[in-house]
Amino acid sequence: MTTITIPAEYGYTLAVSVVSSILVTALGVKVGTYRKVAGVNLPQMYADDEEAKKDKKKMIFNCKQRVHQNTLEGFTTYMASLLIAGIQYPTAAAGLGLVWCAGRILYSMGYSSGDPAKRSWGGFGHIGGLGLLGLVGKMAYDLIVSA
């Protein structure tokens, strides 16, 4: 039987989970705020392609919306990996989580410029997410081997 002990440093992991949640919320607020600027009414998820080609504000809205959607698509896996990895590797998990957050911020800034190719600015953020998955994989391996 394995006992789980939560180290005091797990607070860093929890702090990064709060920062990550605030980041995702801020991305959503940006979408809602810019929706009004671009004139894209609810329940429409995106501006029509033809409209976006003619109106830079609608193109930027679509980019902001895509940033938020893309972030949400991987957020559950990221957050689970962060919180699980932090049990055994709290400072490493927190550091990798901050790398993920920084990558998401630069991804958002680049993509939201209206030039989707600039989203690559935040590509390094994948190191954070993959690193967290690696730590969880190591934990799973150690638990299986010790069984």
Rank of each mutant, 00 (worst) to 15 (best):
T3N: 09
T5V: 15
P7Y: 03
A8D: 09
E9S: 14
Y12D: 03
L14M: 15
A15Q: 08
S17E: 00
S21K: 04
A26S: 12
L27N: 03
L27G: 00
V29M: 08
K30D: 09
K30H: 07
K30N: 13
V31R: 02
V31T: 08
Y34T: 04
Y34L: 07
N41D: 15
M45P: 02
Y46G: 02
A47S: 11
E50A: 15
E51N: 08
A52C: 05
K54P: 08
K54W: 10
D55H: 14
K56C: 02
K57V: 00
I60D: 00
I60E: 01
I60L: 01
I60M: 04
C63G: 02
Q65G: 06
R66G: 12
V67T: 11
H68R: 12
E73N: 05
E73V: 00
G74M: 09
G74Q: 07
F75L: 12
Y78I: 06
A80T: 15
S81W: 03
L82V: 13
L83I: 14
I84L: 13
A85L: 09
G86F: 06
A102M: 04
A102F: 03
R104H: 11
S108W: 01
R119Y: 07
S120A: 14
W121P: 02
G122E: 10
G123V: 08
G123K: 07
G123H: 01
F124G: 13
F124I: 08
H126Y: 14
G134C: 09
D142K: 13
L143N: 08
A147P: 05
